[in-house]
Nucleic acid binder design. Structure first.
Lengths: 205, 205
DNA sequence: CTGATATATGAAACAGGATTCAGGTTCGGC
DNA sequence: GCCGAACCTGAATCCTGTTTCATATATCAG
């Protein structure tokens, strides 16, 4: 089953082409879904011939996987980045949610790709959530040690709860309505997290 | 696009066959996913000939839709049932989560079907969540009126948050690990909800 | 019983789309 | 300005899987 590895292109031209294919695939998968997306359509949007696709990817699933891993990396980077210099966990949580919504809005197609991984490659799908959860758990544990989150809560359960919330809200507002969650929703998210985590703002030492 | 309506079978024999097809489809879609599932496989498991399928459903998508609507109805009924005579919102919430986990465990295939609706029929997918959310919102409003949930929270935002949590936790524990969430997780869920909703047990008036 | 209606059958027609392949073409270095 | 490596091309091939249909069987009211 393991598809033959194709080395990355060595010349700038090749690299450009590969990128064009990835960008086109992101669009097409996002709009049509993995199964309804066709290689023909992808290559057309990328402005290359059909056969060219197979110079860069061994098969359809392969480019999909590439996309998921890229998305995962970018999403985590965006959140890490945005959270870095906040030192209060509640603020970090809220900022994490906002970053997530923003990300979904800017990459709605890319994001829909992830949701499809469930059907396309279950293992890949779980990998995405596991990696996200790991970072989340670390952050929560640190916050618990610092007394910013009730320490009688199980960090992993919390991590999945928060990811689930973010995803549902992201779908509901960003994907369906096409806009960031309204103010009332944002206030509710904050209040809910504040109460749920037992976070005390500026909890000391 | 609208597939021709096929009347329900009139004789007991026909009804039995239709049921067998639905049961088989539930299995096959759950195991293989909509797109990898074949009508051939479905009819074989149902012990009928290939052509028989088209006596009961105009096409593949149609039986899928039927399944989703059935699942939706059963899930809501199970929750409503289980919650009915609890009068404290926190208890209702916790019971709702438990019922959901139970449901997923007992109908893991049926449940995976829902997740696939996203790719198969987006409108159907949203319908599922909207209907769930509606009931949820009503319950939360009532609880807010009764002072069991902080009334400065937006009920719809809460509803989607809670659904998202349940789904993420259901995936993580029930679908992936194959067992109900462990005790630590259950405790965390309760504590998190308690704090988040601002529920006070036995809140007065 | 008997005809009329409801069901059942599965081979064949069809459709759509992934992948292959037998040559072209471009490009940078010499 | 030439050569090989790196790229590119798209018609043809292959598969897989849905849907149709002409024919056969079961069921039941009268």
């Amino acid at each position: 089953m393991r598809a033959p590895l194709i080395p990355l292109p060595t010349t700038p031209r090749g690299q450009r082409t590969r990128q064009k294919l990835l960008a086109a695939a992101e669009e097409v998968f996002g709009e049509l879904g993995f199964h309804n997306a066709g290689i023909v359509e992808i290559t057309q949007r990328a402005d290359v011939a059909l056969g060219t696709f197979y110079l860069y990817f061994p098969d359809k699933k392969s480019i999909f996987e590439d996309l998921v891993r890229t998305l995962n990396a970018r999403l985590r980077a965006a959140i890490r980045e945005r959270i870095r210099d906040l030192d209060d966990r509640l603020e970090q949580e809220v900022a994490g949610f906002e970053t997530f919504f923003d990300f979904v809005r800017k990459h709605r197609n890319l994001y829909k790709v992830i949701l499809q991984a469930e059907t396309v490659d279950e293992e890949l799908y779980r990998w995405h959530y596991r990696t996200l959860a790991e970072g989340y758990v670390r952050g929560l544990r640190r916050a618990q040690a610092a007394g910013q989150v009730r320490s009688d809560l199980d960090a992993e359960t919390l991590a999945y709860s928060l990811m689930g919330m973010a995803e549902a809200l992201g779908s509901r507002y960003v994907l369906w309505d096409g806009k960031l969650p309204p103010a009332a929703a944002r206030r509710t998210i904050r209040a809910f997290l504040e109460g749920g985590l037992g976070a005390r703002r500026n909890a000391r030492r």
